[in-house]
Design a protein around this nucleic acid. Structure first.
Length: 928
RNA sequence: GCUCGAGUGGUGGAAUUGGUAGACACGUUGGACUUAAAAUCCAAUGACCAUUGCGGUCGUGCGGGUUCAAGUCCCGCCUCGAGUACCA
């Protein structure tokens, strides 16, 4: 019978489930360790081999930590809201909940077969009212909070109202777009509604008219991170800009803290860098320009205030509010026409036509505040309304975009920075701008002769003194749009009175998702929830018809795992203080600008209001690479039904066609199966090489259309879960993208059977003896313990598997069947091949429960050597080896090396200049 | 364009701190066992040259450099991948 993985794996999966082996306790004397996988969306296609890669890695680590005596929290659940189930509902009428439950069930079955050590009692689903009650609850807290820049945290809106009542907004430094000041009297004279409108400018969850990414095909608004290159990430539909009343979260209030927090977490530099770019902090100055014959000011943001003397014109975004006021009558027609043109240009056009330069002169002039010169004001769509103030001072001499614009419209260019010792040249002859970050100021009044850095400081000082500007930090990060015009999401706990939104009382939560007749917008264009019957409060006020976006439910899920069945609160203080934060987070880096920013924000807010005890949610993160597919191809001779084998294809005009990888073994096509796979191929003919049809191959994304999807269930059926677990790890470094190739799995399967044979003979008889192990056997074991421990600690699971292979090869060669060696080995491999380890453990006479047994420690004394086989190099090239005692003095080693018989050949007729000896490493002889 | 990451045999990859390049595995070839198959085991396997044996030369994307010694460090390029894109 041999290694019967099917029987063994079923048995232990059942045992773990029935005994709740991996249940985590909230009260424990043990130290805690929290291992989390990124929240999966249960898609209809089920798992392919790429999905469990990270889960296997985290499972190995979690099991290792359990062996090390930690109380391990290793939960799993589902990010259950999402577009695919809803799109399916629109097409078929099936309720998304039904689809989602079905998919979750499938997902769970697949996960169970791999033998993960999850504590399933803690499972959460974002679409479960017991769960989303707390998502809604958090929204209410955000609505009732504002961000105090002075204390640098979120505070209660009640405190803000009290301040307004006594002092107006004087002395308030808040994250807000409210710039005008008002007094206590002003505040008191406002109507209820006007007061509510004012507060909207402060709330962390607020309703406003916002330029949004509207996706007509999906019928909803999308967040910036859900749009890629002007198309929706899900479905790839075109996206356009549209002004809509939407809920937003004031994540920009946290920009600096989100940036600073990155310094405190152990994440890959890659993801941290992506987040830094996404937050996009830039330091500079805000400067006010007067407008000739007008009272208004134009505020611009610049990172280079030192180049103010080089500003020869100004540019406003076409949407800028001052355009209509300042445009002169003789320019009005052209300017209005340009605004219309800019508005109608889709985001897509704008992106693809970056190089084309367009703009119009407004007829108005701004006044450079430092040299009082009049400079023309233009409008152009290369200035974005959404960044800074939507207006710039153009310094064509030292900014490539301004330069291109100036060249195109023949505007003046002045050089204000020059390199030390270099003569200024005439910008008229320049081919491109001189974007100098260093240099000496010229043509710049009082800052002439200063270094760029000094000039920036001096200019800011001067404009602050004159009251025309100030030092300013700008962020690229935008507030997060939080409304979706969809059905399958959390309803907002919000109702409207006099057109103003109010939150429901916490006692009314959860506000459950109502049934609707169709999952489509109403005829009036309102979101699907507007179809729900009696979608209003008891008092009859209408409820919000938007729903929350996908990232709402996934932002705080890791906190709910700490205390998932709590009906009174999000999670208890006790549970949170025990589990604190996630020690190890494993998942893809594709969430760098979405989930990983939003959940950090969410957590910081909960930290501010005293709920979460940690400011950062994920202490350490490892990003697993993607598993790519390995597609196979057949080559059809053009215009025929003839297929030519890979190496002969060049002799014909061919067309490469994807062929299902299940029809291909080791690049050889199963011709019969291929013929039967499609009626079109029924009568296909083949041009073979060596009587075989060889397929071509290519590494591509794993997808149905490329016919290269590898499903884990089939592999488990054939080889077992332990083989799959090991093979996924053996494939290569966890963090690296790598192609899936089923060929290699045989090697891992062979290894597990070889391991099995150390314990059992061909008749399934245990052959483990109680003999005392020899030194070389102990050495093999301890060498392996050292390597495997080290490899787990540094997440190098592929080399860990290699170490096991080497160990088993060596023990097999030694014919070692000794308990003192094989018992520790079973524990050592238990995080990897968990089912087999339990089986071996019980076969050795122990009670089940290897997962709690202490992980073996290595003893240096078994690794000690008496001799070392020195590689001897001549001028850096290894020539021969020589065995010498490990404690031999250097002088004697030199002598031994030189006098060795093989050395003569290399020293003959040459002078030995020098001998380098690194003890127990290398000998290098320098000859000439 | 900018930022980050990566380039090692036929393939996946190893070399953790500058110290034996190619561990481990796949694949391939040859052999043992077998009526046969599966399974298992043994041997060879970077390229080139020499093969009667000993061997030798080259080799980690390319070109330089530092060093007794470079896949690893420095400088300059090339290619691929990811992120971002008029961010002032």
């Amino acid at each position: 019978m041999g290694y019967d993985f099917g029987k063994i794996e079923k048995k232990w999966q059942k045992f773990w489930k029935e005994n709740k082996t991996f249940k985590a306790e909230n009260i424990s004397d043990k130290p805690k360790y929290y291992v989390l996988d990124m929240f999966p969306y249960p898609s209809g296609a089920g798992l392919h081999v790429g999905h469990p890669l990270g889960y296997i890695a985290s499972d190995i680590y979690a099991r290792y930590k359990r062996h090390e005596g930690f109380n391990v929290l290793h939960p799993m659940g589902y990010d259950a809201y999402g577009l695919p189930a809803e799109q399916y509902a629109i097409q078929t009428g099936t309720h998304p909940e039904e689809t989602t439950n079905k998919n979750i069930k499938r997902y769970r079955e697949q996960l169970d077969k791999i033998g993960f050590s999850y504590d399933w009692d803690r499972e959460v689903r974002t679409c479960d009212p017991h769960y989303y009650k707390w998502t809604q609850w958090t929204f209410i807290q955000l609505f009732n909070s504002w961000y105090n820049n002075k204390t640098n945290k979120a505070e209660s809106i009640k405190k803000l109202i009290e301040h307004f009542e006594t002092d107006g907004n004087k002395g308030i430094d808040a994250a807000t777009d409210q710039i005008e000041t008002f007094t206590a009297n002003d505040w008191k004279n406002l109507s209820d509604k006007a007061q509510q409108e004012m507060l909207m400018h402060y709330r962390l969850a607020y309703l406003s008219d916002t330029m949004v990414n509207w996706c007509p095909a999906l019928g909803t608004v999308l967040a910036n991170d859900e749009v890629k290159d002007g198309f929706s990430e899900r479905g790839g539909h075109p996206v356009e800009k549209k002004l809509m009343k939407q809920w937003s979260l004031r994540i920009t209030a946290y920009a600096q803290r989100l940036l600073d927090g990155l310094e405190t977490v152990d994440w890959s530099e890659n993801v941290k860098e992506i987040q830094r770019n996404w937050i996009g902090r830039s330091e500079g100055a805000s400067v006010n320009f007067k407008i000739k014959d007008h009272n208004e000011l134009i505020e611009v943001f610049t990172t280079r205030p030192d180049t103010l003397f080089g500003a020869t014109f100004m540019v406003l975004a076409p949407e800028h509010e001052l355009v209509e006021q300042i445009v002169t009558d003789d320019r009005r027609d052209e300017v209005l026409e340009y605004i219309t043109y800019a508005k109608n240009r889709s985001e897509r056009d704008r992106m693809t036509e970056v190089k084309s330069i367009t703009g119009e002169f407004t007829g108005a002039y701004g006044i450079n505040p430092l040299n009082v010169e009049e400079i023309p004001i233009w409008i152009a769509d290369y200035v974005l309304s959404g960044y800074g103030t939507g207006a710039i001072m153009a310094v064509p001499g030292h900014d490539s975009r301004d330069f291109a614009f100036a060249k195109h419209f023949d505007l003046p260019i002045i050089q204000v920075v020059s390199q030390k010792g270099e003569k200024p040249s005439d910008p008229k002859n320049w081919e491109e701008s001189y974007d100098a970050k260093e240099g000496i100021m010229i043509n710049s009044g009082f800052i002439n002769g200063l270094e760029v850095k000094e000039a920036i400081a001096a200019t800011i000082k001067e404009i602050e003194k004159k009251g025309i500007g100030y030092c300013k930090i700008n962020y690229r990060l935008r507030d997060a749009i939080f409304s979706r015009q969809r059905y399958w999401g959390e309803p907002f706990p919000v109702y409207y009175k006099d057109g103003m939104p109010y939150t429901l009382d916490e006692s009314e939560l959860p506000l459950e998702l109502p049934p609707v007749d169709k999952f489509l917008p109403t005829e009036a264009g309102d979101p699907p929830l507007a179809r729900a019957k009696d979608w209003k409060t008891k008092e009859g006020y209408p409820l919000e018809t938007n729903t929350m976006p996908g990232f709402a439910g996934s932002s705080g899920y890791y906190l709910r795992y700490m205390d998932p069945h709590n009906n009174k609160e999000y999670f208890s203080k006790l549970a949170n203080e025990y589990w604190q934060d996630v020690d190890l987070y494993i998942g893809g880096d594709e969430h760098a600008t979405g989930h990983l920013i939003y959940s950090r924000f969410w957590n910081k807010f909960l930290f501010d209001i005293g709920l979460a005890c940690k400011d950062e949610p994920y202490k350490k993160m490892v990003n697993q690479g993607k598993i790519q597919g390995r597609s196979s191809f057949v080559y059809r001779v053009q215009g025929t039904n003839k297929f030519v084998s890979y190496n002969l294809r060049k002799q014909y005009q061919t067309q490469a066609l994807h062929v299902d990888i299940s029809l291909v073994d080791n690049d050889v096509l199963d011709v019969g199966a291929f013929k039967n796979s499609n009626p079109e191929y029924k009568n296909a003919q083949f041009i073979l090489e060596d009587d075989k049809y060889i397929c071509g191959h290519e590494v591509e994304k794993m997808s149905k259309s490329k016919m290269n999807v590898q499903n884990p269930d089939e592999l488990i059926e054939k080889y077992g879960a332990d083989t799959l677990r090991l093979y996924e790890m053996f494939l290569g470094p966890l963090e690296q993208d790598k192609p899936w190739d089923t060929k290699g799995i045989e090697g891992v399967f062979r290894f597990l059977r070889k391991l099995w044979r150390l314990y059992f003979d061909d008749n399934d008889q245990l052959i483990v003896t109680n003999d005392t192990p020899a030194d070389d056997e102990l050495k093999v074991l301890h060498k392996t313990i050292k390597k495997v421990r080290n490899d787990i600690e540094r997440f190098s699971f592929n080399t860990g598997v290699s170490a096991f292979m080497i160990c088993v090869n060596e023990l097999s060669d030694l014919k070692c069947h000794k308990r003192e060696i094989l018992e520790p080995l079973a524990i050592l491999i238990s995080p990897y091949a968990s089912h087999m380890a339990e089986e071996l453990w019980t076969a050795l006479g122990h009670d089940p429960g290897i997962s709690e047994v202490e992980y073996p420690h290595f003893d240096e004394k078994y690794l000690a050597e008496n001799t070392f086989s020195y590689p001897v190099s001549f001028n850096g090239k290894m020539r021969f080896k020589i065995d010498l005692p490990t404690d031999m003095p250097v002088a004697e080693i030199e002598k031994a090396a030189i006098e060795a018989e093989e050395a003569q050949k290399w020293t003959e007729g040459k002078t030995v200049r020098k001998i380098i000896v690194v003890p127990n490493r290398i000998i290098n002889v320098v000859v000439q």
